[in-house]
């Protein structure tokens, strides 16, 4: 797959939230305010880019070499947890303003299925290191796109009247469903027509 193809696939066609349901918990939980949605989006892009590089390196050069690919789930989740912790410490030490902006979102990311998801997809599709880096960044960008759109919509909801049982989470789900319908416009045929 070409790099442009990977970018379009992961940002639009297989948008992590709207078509694969990865990272739905933070999507529903952190999309109340635009500001926090942007912060979460950047944190996810950052961690996914790092995680996809490191897990692909480990998978291609360690697990395959020693023929222990069945351990991938355990290894990946540990690497991701350690990575998130490490990134948090580095940012806290070197860039306090960035830490202030991203800090509270970083611990939440370990349990974000999107990060483990991109590692698993990279293995499934047999990406090399650079391809998986591009895939990680674009999947993160797709996550940010939908969470920012969602937060803009939810800020509008605060001034609208909504039937009581639908307030909060249910209306967020239904809105996300409508967004997913809109994203259906980006399907595999589009990719074929664009890239031939």
């Amino acid at each position: 797959m070409s790099y442009v193809g990977i970018i379009i696939t992961f940002v639009f066609v297989e948008n992590f939230i709207l078509s694969r349901f990865l990272g739905l918990c933070p999507f529903i939980g952190v999309s109340r305010k635009m500001e926090s949605a942007v912060g979460m989006g950047f944190a996810v892009i950052f961690v996914m880019a790092m995680a996809s590089i490191i897990t692909t390196l480990i998978y291609n050069y360690l697990l395959i070499t020693f023929n222990i690919t069945f351990l991938k789930t355990i290894v990946f989740i540990l690497v991701i947890a350690a990575l998130v912790q490490f990134v948090e410490m580095v940012i806290q030490k070197n860039s306090p303003p960035l830490y202030k902006a991203l800090g509270i979102y970083l611990p939440l990311i370990t349990t974000n299925c999107a990060v483990l998801g991109i590692a698993m997809i990279a293995v499934e599709k047999e990406f090399n290191v650079f391809e998986s880096f591009v895939a990680g960044v674009s999947a993160g960008a797709g996550f940010m796109l939908s969470i920012v759109l969602m937060s803009a919509l939810r800020e509008k909801f605060e001034t609208e009247w909504i039937p009581k049982p639908f307030r909060g989470m249910p209306i967020a789900f239904i809105t996300a469903g409508l967004m997913a319908l809109a994203f259906m416009a980006f399907d595999k045929a589009l990719l074929k027509n664009l890239l031939g």
Partner: peptide, 9 residues
């Protein structure tokens, strides 16, 4: 996929 979100909502 949108159906899943509707049903859940």
């Amino acid at each position: 996929s949108s159906g899943a979100l509707f049903v859940m909502g």
